[in-house]
Design a protein around this nucleic acid. Structure first.
Length: 852
RNA sequence: GCGAGCGUGGCGGAAUUGGUAGACGCAUGGCUCUUAGGAAGCCACGUCGUAAGACGUGGGGGUUCGAGUCCCCCCGCUCGCACCA
């Protein structure tokens, strides 16, 4: 054995931490706090792959280092345990989802524990636990009481053949993508959350957050605030005017027709008898398309539409313009009606081209607006009182004019829609509501929470398409205490997002039974100082959680406006997958071989395609962290996860890289320990004697690399740039391996900075150095800037920007002596060769450049 | 289509932010030790060249004493967004 016995060490120290409760959250409140949080996983049946621990290892290094730096650290893990896969499995096997979920959680937990992650497991929680979802329901009641939860008839994708509701993603061209069964729009009463009420604050408060710019932008654009105007178009021969929303009221003079969404209520009233058949046919055709399909076409895609035969009056020109219907206008956005200005809008231009409608230029600056729309700025033309103004000035003026004439007003719209909060599933939080015979909806009294999920015999929807909870016949009726009437419980459940909207608060006091969290503790711990997770949650989860948090803030239950002060997305770990193109069959990497630059199934001529893919069981490219831990140890595995490359980058897993970090740890081990080697007569480990109190302290190279590593690792805890910090630790160990002796305090400093990365071996080394307590709370070493200086400065000498030599000078050498020394260098002299020096450039401590 | 980002050895990646390109690691080759295998240690490792040296960060051009880094054009890849009025 050339190094340490990782199996013994990993088990020994994991047992020690558990026995000593080393990672129990501290209770004194005098020290500064640090709340570091991982996005908690959905405990899938597949277990962990090596991609999961990347983020968890990064946060673990931060947590462990912060503890040593004197912070009280809140470091916790839980389970986002409601969700579809467990329900689907239950449908197949009849096993209760809670049983499936509990088993998966046990697997995940044991896999995580084998990595030595320093979670306070006494705070573990699961969103599907009634003691947890009791408070999810409690927050829902708060939303309801504040007018932010309401019920609405919402069209859902209903598949009669399957008797179930489908997500938009599952429907294409009116068919279920899996089976091809017809899908119809069916109105269902659904819970909605009024997130749009918080649109402005969700947008504005992003500014103060330390978030990746991409995520910041994604949320900002998702909310999609646009400022414009509502403009009233009178309809010829009708009392019902059309209100359109536009962000370009300045182009009204170029407005040559109006388009209504096919579903617009006015369509029936205004369509002329001649056009009725065409309109009906078009509406029928559009009705089959989902809104998603309608909105996933390019702006310049060919347009469809039908004229209603009716005419509207352009409010600024007074001219009559035709009214059309077209599917690119959506009933659910704006007012469901637009006016078209083909000269300055791509969609309108495509429409005008298709149906030969007039195009009037009103902003100068483009080429020929008959050929292509011009969307840039410029002076207005053909626009009466707007002529000569730029877009901003024209907008302001025309809105003033519209308001003065009662024909419109300034208006703000958001892309963000209210949040559809009902799911027709079993494995989710039941709504704490019931409906009286008269349709009135009431909340279950808070003292009766939680409304627990009832047992049912089958997890499928009912024959008539009711959600699975409708099968719980005994559970459905409930007596309203106020009126004595028998009411019916809600059969929808909440979406998976619900539980993850507030779990970071429950971690603060997860065992509390009479409150969701302790208010004083919340003031101490919030906000989350560092939140790490994948960027697939850039919008939905992170936006929904912010929304709930703001509601809780308004209600006085939390003390911060925002939950997550700093956000970081770790990159995904990929692995090559091998797939036979014909059959679509995947192969493990040991089943394939490379010949003449192509890949084949071993021993055959069957070609396989290679692709760098996400790890997934179905692609046969999963690397299991348990295998890595068994072969190389948890510490080597942890270090490789962070050494692979920058944390935010997606990289390919290379198992040979783990062997490299393992070799590094073996080298560290041998600095202190001579490993037992029975074959050469050494029966037990002994201390090497290399690390000693009286080792000479004049090894400047060793001291410098130590302090450089301390500096880099300390910075890495803040920057989350671990790969180069590990490289610097390797440099120190290479230097220490060369040294004949290492002062004991230097080695101890190194073991301390190593400990967040490789805690098992660090604890063992610490103990063998004679310490009796854990290294977890040892004070973090500080680097000494003076010790980073070298005895000699190496200065590069360039002539005309090309490297021609190097000189060594004392660190305190003046510029003049350095320049003189550089000129004296014989190699440099060859290139100067009597030519006059025009310029001498000296970059402090780095280089000299002569221009000749 | 629009937007953002990226392109560096056989591979993952470094580069003090305009100052010695290739740190650290993987893979590979050589040597030492070893009965052997393995481990460990040492050395080499961008290309061409015996060497001096020349060339070299996707390609082309520019700014500069000096460019992987800044500017312009092109090529390629990745990730977002996708008729939002």
């Amino acid at each position: 054995m050339a190094g340490f016995d990782h199996k013994t060490l990993d088990a020994k120290w994991q047992a020690f931490w558990e026995r000593e409760q080393t990672f129990l959250t501290p209770t004194d409140r005098t020290r500064p706090k640090y709340y570091v949080l991982d996005m908690f996983p959905y405990p899938s049946g597949d277990g962990l792959h090596v991609g999961h621990p990347k983020g968890y290892t990064a946060t673990d290094v931060v947590a462990r280092a912060k503890r040593m730096m004197g912070f009280n650290v809140l470091r916790v893990m839980g389970w986002d345990s409601f969700g579809l896969p467990a329900e689907r499995r239950a449908e197949r096997t009849g096993e209760h989802p809670s049983v499936i979920t509990a088993r998966n959680i046990a697997t995940f937990k044991s896999q995580l524990q084998k990595l030595g992650l320093s979670y306070d497991w006494t705070r573990e929680l699961a969103t599907s636990d009634p003691t947890y979802y009791k408070w999810t329901q409690w927050i829902f009641e708060l939303l309801f009481e504040r007018g932010l939860a309401y019920r609405a008839e919402v069209p859902v994708n209903f598949c009669p053949a399957l008797g179930t509701v489908l997500a938009n993603e599952e429907v294409k061209d009116g068919k279920y993508i899996e089976t091809g069964d017809d899908v119809e729009k069916r109105l269902m009463k659904q819970w909605m959350l009024r997130i749009t009420e918080y649109a402005d604050r969700l947008s504005e408060d992003l500014t103060g957050l330390d978030w990746p710019p991409g995520t910041h932008t994604a949320q900002f654009e998702w909310i999609g605030k646009s400022i414009g105007a509502n403009v009233v178009f009178k309809v010829v021969g009708s009392d019902h005017p059309i209100t359109v929303f536009t962000t370009r009221p300045d182009t009204l003079f170029g407005g040559t027709w109006v388009v209504l969404a096919p579903e617009h209520p006015l369509v029936d009233q205004i369509t002329t008898p001649e056009q009725r058949a065409a309109v009906a046919a078009y509406r029928d055709q559009v009705g089959k398309r989902s809104e998603r399909d309608r909105t996933t076409e390019a702006a310049d895609a060919p347009k469809t539409g039908v004229a209603t035969g009716a005419f509207a009056i352009n409010p600024v020109t007074g001219k009559q313009i035709p009214i059309w219907i077209a599917d690119y206008v959506l009933a659910s956005y704006g007012t469901g009606a637009v006016f078209a200005c083909p000269a300055h809008d791509e969609r309108d231009h495509a429409f005008a081209t298709k149906f030969t409608l007039p195009i009037i230029e009103v902003v100068k600056g483009g080429e020929n607006v008959q050929v292509a729309a011009y969307t840039g700025d410029g002076p207005h033309v053909n626009s009466d009182f707007l002529d000569g103004l730029d877009i901003d000035a024209a907008k302001e003026k025309v809105i003033g004019w519209l308001e003065a004439h009662g024909l419109g007003s300034k208006s703000i719209r958001y892309k963000l829609r209210d949040w559809l909060f009902s799911r027709q599933r079993y494995w989710g939080e039941p709504f704490p509501t019931y409906e009286l015979p008269d349709g009135q909806v009431k909340l279950v009294p808070k003292s009766d929470l939680p409304v627990a999920l009832p047992q049912i015999d089958e997890y499928k929807p009912t024959r008539d398409g009711q959600p699975p909870l409708a099968r719980a016949k005994d559970w459905l009726p409930v007596t309203d205490k106020e009126t004595g009437q028998v009411a019916m419980r809600e059969t929808n459940t909440m979406p998976q997002w619900a539980g993850s909207c507030w779990y970071y608060l429950r971690f603060i006091s997860p065992q509390l039974t009479d409150q969701p969290w302790d208010r004083e503790e919340e003031k101490y711990w919030m906000p989350v100082d560092l939140y790490v997770g994948g960027n697939e949650h850039a919008v939905l989860h992170l936006l929904y959680a912010r929304f709930w948090h703001k509601v809780l803030y308004d209600a006085g239950f939390v003390s911060t406006k925002e939950p997550f002060q700093r956000l970081f997305h770790q990159g995904m770990i990929h692995k090559t997958s091998y797939r036979e193109p014909k059959s679509g069959k995947y192969h493990y990497d040991h089943e394939v071989e490379q010949r003449d630059g192509a890949w084949y199934v071993k021993g055959t001529n069957d070609v396989v395609e290679t692709k760098l893919d996400k790890m997934s069981k179905s692609r046969y490219n999963v690397v299991n962290p348990d295998d890595m831990g068994n072969e190389f140890g948890a510490d080597a595995m942890r270090m490789y996860e962070l050494f692979m490359g920058p944390l935010e980058d997606g990289v390919e897993w290379e198992t040979s890289g783990v062997a490299g970090t393992r070799r590094f740890l073996d080298r560290v081990w041998r600095l202190l320990v001579v490993p037992a080697d029975p074959s050469s007569g050494i029966e037990a480990d002994t201390l090497s004697g290399k690390v000693s109190e009286d080792a000479p302290r004049d090894n400047k190279d060793l001291e410098r690399t130590l302090h450089a590593a301390i500096k880099k690792v300390t910075a890495a805890v803040t920057d989350l740039r671990f790969n180069t910090a590990i490289a610097d630790m390797m440099v120190f160990v290479n230097e220490a391996t060369k040294a004949t002796a290492i002062p004991r305090d230097w080695f101890e400093m190194f073991v301390k900075i190593l400990s967040p990365f490789a805690p098992h071996i660090a604890e063992e080394l610490w103990q063998r150095l004679g310490h009796t307590t854990t290294i977890t709370y040892e004070p973090w070493p500080a680097h000494d800037e003076a010790k980073l200086a070298r005895d000699v400065m190496v200065i590069a000498v360039q002539v005309l920007g090309k490297l021609r030599g190097q000189i060594e000078v004392p660190p305190d050498a003046t510029e003049a002596t350095i320049l003189a020394a550089a000129k004296a260098d014989h190699k440099v002299q060859q290139f100067l060769a009597g030519k006059p020096i025009k310029r001498e450039i000296y970059v402090k401590g780095r280089l000299v450049n002569f221009v000749v």
